[in-house]
């Protein structure tokens, strides 16, 4: 059962992520990235992190990608300027494949054959996670909050139309 779910969503993630990088229409890219992110959320559930899965869907697909869509439609971004298959893309494909293979051999060599024990009810409890987040890692948590504030300010300043004070 678990294996079947994994295989289904792994295939879905791979196919949709390929569509993300290969499709010329950015709207399609965002839509298929939604599928990829939801598949990764399923992986989180399988790995015993349902909270992360919910946050993943809520933050990534529910907010970040909607923002992308908004910007794409606002700017009316059309397809890519480079068409067809050229040397540049061939090189990119080689580099990407090489990197993926390198990672794959590293991971496979070191971690192959390690089985995970089935999940217990206590493994997915939320209270320990909350304690870790707001107690053990309180300082990083606050710093991330500060970072978000800085990002909001920066985004507002950047995207704001200049008020014609200088020109």
């Amino acid at each position: 059962m678990e294996m079947a779910v994994f295989l289904l969503f792994a295939a879905l993630a791979l196919v949709s992520s390929l569509v993300v990088v290969l499709h010329r229409n950015p709207i399609y890219a965002v839509m298929s990235l939604v599928v990829t992110f939801v598949s990764i959320a399923v992986m989180f559930v399988l790995l015993g992190a349902p909270f992360l899965a919910a946050v993943q869907v809520l933050v990534y697909t529910g907010a970040i990608l909607v923002l992308f869509l908004f910007v794409i439609m606002l700017l009316n971004v059309s397809g890519d300027s480079s068409r067809g298959f050229d040397l540049h893309k061939a090189l990119a494909a080689v580099v990407a494949a090489g990197f993926a293979l390198l990672l794959l051999t590293l991971f496979w060599g070191r971690y192959h054959g390690l089985d995970l024990s089935p999940l217990q009810e206590s493994d997915v409890a939320l209270k320990p996670l909350a304690r870790a987040l707001l107690d053990t890692y309180l300082l990083p948590f606050e710093i991330v909050g500060l970072l978000l504030l800085a990002a909001v300010t920066a985004a507002t300043v950047l995207a704001r139309r200049s008020q014609d004070t200088s020109s």
Partner: peptide
């Protein structure tokens, strides 16, 4: 259960 290496491969 799914071995951890499969997640890493993905």
């Amino acid at each position: 259960t799914v071995p951890v290496s499969w997640y890493l491969a993905l």
